[in-house]
């Protein structure tokens, strides 16, 4: 961990302003940032603690949706009565992630910014375009079993590791942020995470210094909410494949996927294929997949996971 200075922000505006200075980073739960700082994958010179800005509330919106403060802990979000009732897929996704201890610290905003678990990203002696642009990708011809098959590029095949973000993608959440100039904007979740392309180190649409203040959910979808996470052990592991789904009573359903994409993955075509069944959804969702020999199984596993959801839905 490189030396840094530390300050507690007194207001959202002050935090955003301070963050615009070179080398500054926000720290919220710290569960991912400190992990990466110890390995010098992240090397901020100044940390702005944004835990005390009152961003920890969950409130209804005028539109009938829900505004989730960026500092709401994963545990609290999953346990929130409204979320449990109206956005159960979000509760389920959160509870499928990490451990109880981590969920007690990890925040809504921080989880959106969680970085990949690609092992080449994690070993600073290895080439990684995400960590060190231009150094190459160790994973494409290396150990890629856990990595992405969709949205990847020749520069990077890292998977997005979040469960929560998959549910937010499914729910068409908006990410609310405040900029260094105090300006506020909302970014649709679909546009929030960026594909790697030639610039895998640029992972989201936030501008330097921009602080996530909340995540807003539109009004509830109804329907049956499920989140199914398939992994190599029963708990406390990242997804090989995860599927978030809302099955509507009208036969219309929607799907989002984790573990397979360079970002939380969702396609209109997959949603449209819902009435045709699991195989059709899988085919639509996996269109354009570029698997390696090691992670090609994720295509079949995605289809199987969807089949499982359809089977349970019918049961």
């Amino acid at each position: 961990m490189r030396p840094f200075t530390y300050s507690r922000a007194a207001s959202v505006e002050e935090a955003a302003k301070t963050a615009a200075t070179q080398g500054a980073r926000f720290i919220a739960g710290g569960t991912n940032l400190l992990d990466l700082m110890k390995l010098q994958i992240e090397t901020p010179t100044h940390l702005i603690d944004v835990n005390h800005l009152g961003l920890d509330r969950i409130e209804p919106t005028a539109e009938g949706g829900l505004k989730i403060g960026a500092m709401v802990r994963n545990t609290d979000l999953a346990a929130d009565k409204t979320v449990r009732r109206d956005y159960a897929v979000l509760s389920r996704a959160l509870l499928a992630g990490a451990s109880g201890q981590l969920r007690n610290k990890a925040t809504t905003g921080g989880n959106l910014l969680q970085r990949t678990r690609c092992p080449y990203f994690y070993d600073t002696r290895m080439p990684c375009n995400k960590r060190q642009p231009g150094s190459g990708c160790g994973a494409i011809k290396g150990m890629s079993r856990s990595l992405a098959i969709l949205g990847t590029s020749d520069a990077c095949i890292a998977q997005h590791p979040s469960d929560m973000a998959v549910a937010l993608r499914l729910l068409d959440a908006q990410v609310d942020a405040v900029g260094a100039d105090g300006g506020r904007r909302s970014i649709p979740i679909a546009d929030f995470h960026l594909l790697p392309g030639e610039t895998p180190h640029i992972e989201n649409a936030l501008k330097p210094g921009e602080l996530i203040t909340s995540v807003t959910l539109p009004k509830p979808l109804g329907g049956t909410h499920v989140y199914r996470k398939v992994r190599d052990r029963a708990s406390y592991a990242f997804a090989l494949v995860s599927v978030a789904a809302v099955f509507g009573k009208d036969g219309r359903s929607r799907f989002a996927f984790g573990g397979i994409g360079a970002k939380p993955w969702r396609t209109d075509a997959a949603d449209a294929a819902a009435p045709s069944g699991a195989a059709a959804v899988a085919e639509a969702a996996l269109s354009g997949a570029r698997p390696t020999a090691q992670n090609a199984f994720k295509q079949q596993l995605t289809a199987r996971t969807l089949a499982s959801l359809y089977r349970q839905k019918g049961a």
């Binding site: 678990r117 092992p119 994690y122 856990s146 190599d232 052990r233 029963a234 708990s235 406390y236 592991a237 990242f238």
Partner: peptide, 11 residues
């Protein structure tokens, strides 16, 4: 220990 998996309680 995030990548080399050993059994946890739930297993």
């Amino acid at each position: 220990m995030a990548e080399y998996l050993v059994p946890v309680h739930a297993d």
